[in-house]
Every structure is written in structure tokens, then in C-alpha cells.
């Protein structure tokens, strides 16, 4: 018997540099460091334009994770952390970014980042993070007008999908597409707790349910759970989804069916996981401009 020891939850880490920009020619270098519970993201901007970013897995130490993500973003550019003029820390571990001059909540940063990535028509942002879920409404400037965050449990979050990918032995990047290889959409399973959902899924698999039907059932439960949170805040067009689960069509398409509102497609230039860090870097840029104007 061959035992499958692969880590199906492991998502690919990302590093991107804008080769058309030269940081040496820029006046204001700012960074947003979003230390989440699952992933750490750094976005570096030069004069308000995205220059580089990296998305890495958060380790046991938030400060180390922030430094690693930032060093990765700057890899091969010749730019060093010390040369960044202003850094804003955001996310779950925002107070643990050792080189940040200021911290802001990820709610404000996601709204600002979504405004930059998708444009000023964005009114609703759903951030499906590693261990929480945020529904945000914002105005045409990316300022938050209403928000709700649920981090009471991991159901409906990225960590839940990771745990489920490992259970059904399907790589996390493929789990969304696999959920559509079914004849009929099943009813959602328990959506109140990852542990209950896992044990219910295991029970269904043992009863002989097709694996893809169980995956569809789980992702449908996630979509239902998130939908109730969105309903509380209200969903207005344009609607966008950020965070790792934005890359999971199994959740996104089911959520679209529930809301009746098609979210804007991910901007191919920007990874949906980097939206909060971009927001942080934009806030830093604005602060820097304000400081320069005051002098």
C-alpha cells in the first residue's frame, strides 16, 4: 500500500517584480506588510505604482514572517528594507512588523487596495482570509463605510479549505475545479465549524459518496456561510473578492449564484491575496506625501 504523504494544502508562494520600474528613479518608496494568520504579504510601491510583491506562508514568528516576505519581495532588485521610506503593517500580526512606522487594520487596507486594483467603482469587498472573513463596503475613494469581520471560527476561511484539501487528497489549487465534475449540485454540509464539516465529509466519503460531490458540498457550505455575512453588510455593485479563496472558482461561482451579483474578475496584474498589502503601501504613500507637504 502506498501512503500519500503529499501536502495537498500547500499553495504556491508568489514573487513578482515590475521590471518596467526602476526604484532608483523613484522619489517615494513605500511598503505595506500584511501579516495574516496563514500568509504574509509584502507590497512595495515606488511613487504610488506597484513595484514588487511577495506572498509567503506565515511561520511561527510574525516578525520573522514579515521580514522574510519583504526580503522576498525585494529579492533581485538591489533594494533593501532600510531604503524603504515608510512601511505600514497590517493584518493579524500587524503589531509585529519590526520595521513598520505605523499600523492600520486590514479592513481599511483591503478597501483602499481594492479601490486601486479594480478601480473607484468598487463598493463591496469580500476578503476571504486564512482564518477570518471580512465583508466591507466602501466609497469611491476606497474609504470604508461599513464592515463586518468574523474570526470566531475557521469555517468559511482559507484554513478550512486547506484542511479539507488534505482530507480529500486534492491539491488546493485544483479543489475548486474538481467540485464542478459532478452531475448535480449537492446540498451544503455543516457550515458552522471546520471540525464538524470535516467529520461530516468523512462520514459521507465512508458512505460511498463520490469525492467530487463531497468537495462540492463543502464549498457550497462555505459560500452559504459567507453569503449570510455579506447580507448583513449589504452587497452593492461593483463587488470584488480578495484573499486566497478568490482563486477558488468552486466558492466564487457558488457565491455568485447566491448573491446574483457577478464579482469583478481578478485583475491579472495583481494577485488577489496582495490587495491588503497594496492598501497598506498606498496609505504609506499618502502619509509620505502629507509629511512632505507639511515641510
Amino acid at each position: 500500500m502506498v501512503i500519500d504523504t503529499r501536502e495537498h494544502w500547500r499553495w504556491p508562494e508568489v514573487h513578482w517584480v515590475n521590471k518596467e520600474l526602476d526604484w532608483r528613479a523613484g522619489g517615494a518608496i513605500t511598503a505595506g506588510v500584511d501579516v495574516g494568520s496563514i500568509s504574509s504579504k509584502t507590497a512595495v510601491m515606488v511613487d504610488g505604482k506597484l513595484y514588487a510583491y511577495a506572498i509567503l506562508r506565515t511561520g511561527a514568528s510574525s516578525p520573522d514572517s514579515a521580514v522574510r516576505a519583504t526580503k522576498k519581495a525585494l529579492e533581485g532588485t538591489g533594494l533593501e528594507i532600510e531604503k524603504i521610506h515608510l512601511t505600514i503593517g497590517t493584518g493579524y500580526g500587524r503589531i509585529n512588523v519590526p520595521f513598520a512606522q505605523k499600523t492600520l487594520t486590514e479592513i481599511a487596507c483591503h478597501a483602499r487596495g481594492a479601490n486601486f486594483v479594480w478601480g473607484p467603482t468598487v463598493r463591496t469587498v469580500l476578503d476571504m482570509g486564512g482564518q477570518d472573513c471580512k465583508a466591507i463596503q466602501c466609497d469611491e475613494r476606497g474609504k470604508v463605510t461599513s464592515f463586518l469581520m468574523n474570526d470566531k471560527c475557521a469555517a468559511g476561511t482559507g484554513r478550512g479549505v486547506e484542511a479539507f484539501a488534505d482530507l480529500v487528497k486534492v491539491p488546493i489549487e485544483k479543489i475548486g475545479e474538481e467540485s464542478f465534475s459532478i452531475k448535480e449540485e449537492p446540498k451544503p454540509i455543516s457550515n458552522t465549524c471546520v471540525i464538524f464539516a470535516k467529520s461530516e465529509a468523512l462520514g459521507l466519503l465512508r458512505k460511498g459518496w463520490d469525492r467530487n460531490v463531497v468537495i462540492a458540498s463543502y464549498l457550497s457550505a462555505m459560500a452559504h456561510r459567507v453569503y449570510t455575512l455579506l447580507e448583513r453588510v449589504g452587497i452593492a455593485k461593483d463587488f470584488v473578492i480578495s484573499g486566497g479563496i478568490a482563486k477558488n472558482p468552486g466558492v466564487v461561482r457558488r457565491l455568485t449564484t447566491l448573491t446574483g451579483i457577478e464579482p469583478l474578475a481578478p485583475n491579472p496584474q495583481y494577485d488577489p491575496q496582495i490587495v491588503g498589502a497594496i492598501g497598506g503601501a498606498l496609505f504609506a504613500h499618502a502619509m509620505l506625501q502629507k509629511q512632505k507637504g507639511a515641510k
Binding site: 463605510t145 463586518l148 468574523n150 474570526d151 458552522t192 465549524c193 449570510t228 448583513r232 453588510v233
Partner: peptide, 16 residues
């Protein structure tokens, strides 16, 4: 801004 502080769990939605 309308800030919703609280959570939703299996028993209901509890937000201030």
C-alpha cells in the same frame, strides 16, 4: 462607518 463587532456562530449572529 458602520462597524460590526461580534461574530456569527452555529447559534446565531451577534454583532454590536
Amino acid at each position: 462607518m458602520k462597524a460590526h463587532y461580534g461574530y456569527k456562530d452555529g447559534s446565531g449572529e451577534y454583532f454590536i
